[in-house]
């Protein structure tokens, strides 16, 4: 197993993404992710000092929309698709802690 990424790293990232992986899957993904990182490491052979990191594959900037109101969704239709509703709001399990 390469040292680019450990099994613990993969388990941690899976946990953050709320994925449950079996032991076999953890082994398999650790190897696959390490291969991908190896592939990306080919870039280390190049001199990139003068290049700006690519933020997007398309060479576009400043793609804006006008600040004009568009159509909104029908509340009843949207709420009808929710698992649980109360007082015209989405009812969710109790949240522990608080959002960031």
């Amino acid at each position: 197993m390469t040292e680019r990424i450990t099994r613990q790293d993969v388990a941690h990232v899976a946990d953050l993404a709320q994925l449950s992986l079996t032991d076999d899957e953890l082994d398999a993904f650790t190897i696959q992710l390490a291969d991908i990182l190896d592939h990306a490491a080919d870039l280390d052979a190049l001199d990139l000092a003068d290049l700006q990191p690519t933020a997007h594959p398309l060479p576009l900037v400043n793609v804006f929309r006008a600040d004009v109101v568009g159509p909104t969704s029908d509340r009843d239709e949207v709420l009808a698709a929710a698992p649980a509703v109360e007082d015209a709001q989405f009812k969710v399990p109790p949240v522990l802690g608080e959002g960031p």
Binding site: D67, V69, G70, P71, T72, S73, R75, V78, A88, F90
Partner: peptide, 22 residues
Amino acid sequence: TVTKMFSGAPNRFGGEPNTNID
């Protein structure tokens, strides 16, 4: 702004719940 950051739903305080949505 008049609308939200990434869509044309209104940016308005105090509306009925879940009305300024898209």
